[in-house]
């Protein structure tokens, strides 16, 4: 039972956070951490566990965001009605682009996903139905509670927390199922896994589709919170990069890695912008970038890997159980 102790304590702290830090900005910061944690956790399924570094995940993020905003703009429906459509579109796109691109390995796969993301951005920029270059907006004044347009960040916080728990639950279930074992084998050596009869292509594709569907939910939640999406904010390559950095920084291939990464990077980004942004010298990115470089240089396995290692040194017997997921190499 000890293995559930620390996650339970952490969960209790996360639930209590907005009740302790009550200013609107602190609550919003908490909500943003959870939102980015959802996206980074979704990326983690294919990028961390399967070792397929996708830099085009923003396509799925955009699918979710655009589906929600389109449901409102064109049909006057609550944005959340668009969520299933966004998931369906993402999974379908993942299937279509996954079949040819997942055969590529290493950098070639990453490059192919970038190309797909940029293509999607250009297509949407020229599609009138999706608001072209201007973008689509959501309900500015909530009509009903189903519009999920709140003044306070508190409802968003608990909504995002619920979705994050579901995402992590699915991830946990996956890693402990047959697919999870296949993925780990493929990540270590795809050739060896294939030679032992692991259906590598099929398993990678399933992971990709699952990851795509969950990423699209993150995109939908993003658009509902901010009430707007345009090609740059919904399909800009930087969003993919953010998911990747958060997962890698926290610990790619670890269940709670993306959450730890988001909990470090989101406040870092917001606070450095609050303090330095108004000065107008772009200092924010210098500081933000420097910290990422330092962590990458001294702890390439991610913060969580470091914590796990220190923990293992401290209490050797508890270590493997406490981390809840196998080590990244």
């Amino acid at each position: 039972m000890r293995r559930f102790l620390w996650p339970t304590v952490a969960l209790a702290l996360i639930i209590l956070y907005p009740l302790v830090f009550t200013t609107p900005f602190q609550q919003r910061l908490g909500a943003l951490i959870l939102l980015y944690a959802i996206a980074a956790s979704a990326w983690n399924i294919v990028g961390g566990y399967a070792g397929q570094v996708s830099v085009g995940h923003v396509v799925f993020f955009g699918c979710g965001a655009y589906a929600s905003m389109a449901a409102y703009s064109h049909f006057a429906l609550p944005p959340m009605v668009g969520v299933p459509a966004g998931i369906a579109a993402s999974v379908a796109i993942a299937a279509v682009i996954g079949v040819p691109t997942l055969r590529l390995s290493g950098h070639y796969f990453s490059m192919a996903t970038i190309a797909v993301a940029e293509l999607a951005r250009l297509i949407v920029t020229n599609t009138e139905f999706l608001g072209a270059a201007v973008g689509l907006s959501g309900p500015t004044v909530p009509r009903t509670v189903f519009d999920l347009s709140f003044i306070s960040a508190l409802p968003y916080y608990y909504l995002f927390l619920t979705v994050l728990l579901i995402t992590l639950g699915i991830t946990w279930w996956m890693t402990n199922s047959r697919i999870g074992f296949y993925l780990r084998a493929i990540k270590d050596s795809e050739r060896a896994a294939r030679s032992l009869g692991a259906p590598a292509s099929r398993v990678k594709l399933y992971a990709y589709m699952l990851s795509a569907g969950l990423t699209s939910v993150a995109g939908a939640l993003y658009s509902m919170m901010f009430g707007f999406v345009d090609p740059e904010s919904g399909l800009g390559i930087l969003i993919s990069v953010k998911m990747l950095i958060m997962a890698a920084l926290g610990g790619a291939g670890l269940l709670f890695g993306p959450l730890v990464g988001a909990a470090i990077l989101v406040p870092l980004e917001e606070i450095s912008n609050n303090v330095l942004g108004g000065k107008g010298a772009g200092l924010t990115f210098v500081v933000y970038g420097a910290i990422i470089v330092i962590i990458a240089r001294f702890q390439p396995g991610g913060i969580l890997a470091l914590i796990n290692r220190l923990w293992a040194k401290h209490k050797p017997a508890e270590a493997p159980a406490a981390q809840g997921a196998p080590h990244a190499p």
């Binding site: 707007f228 345009d230 740059e232 904010s233 108004g278 924010t284």
Partner: peptide
């Protein structure tokens, strides 16, 4: 002053 970083 606050910086919007070009992001909505």
């Amino acid at each position: 002053f606050a910086d919007n970083q070009g992001s909505p």
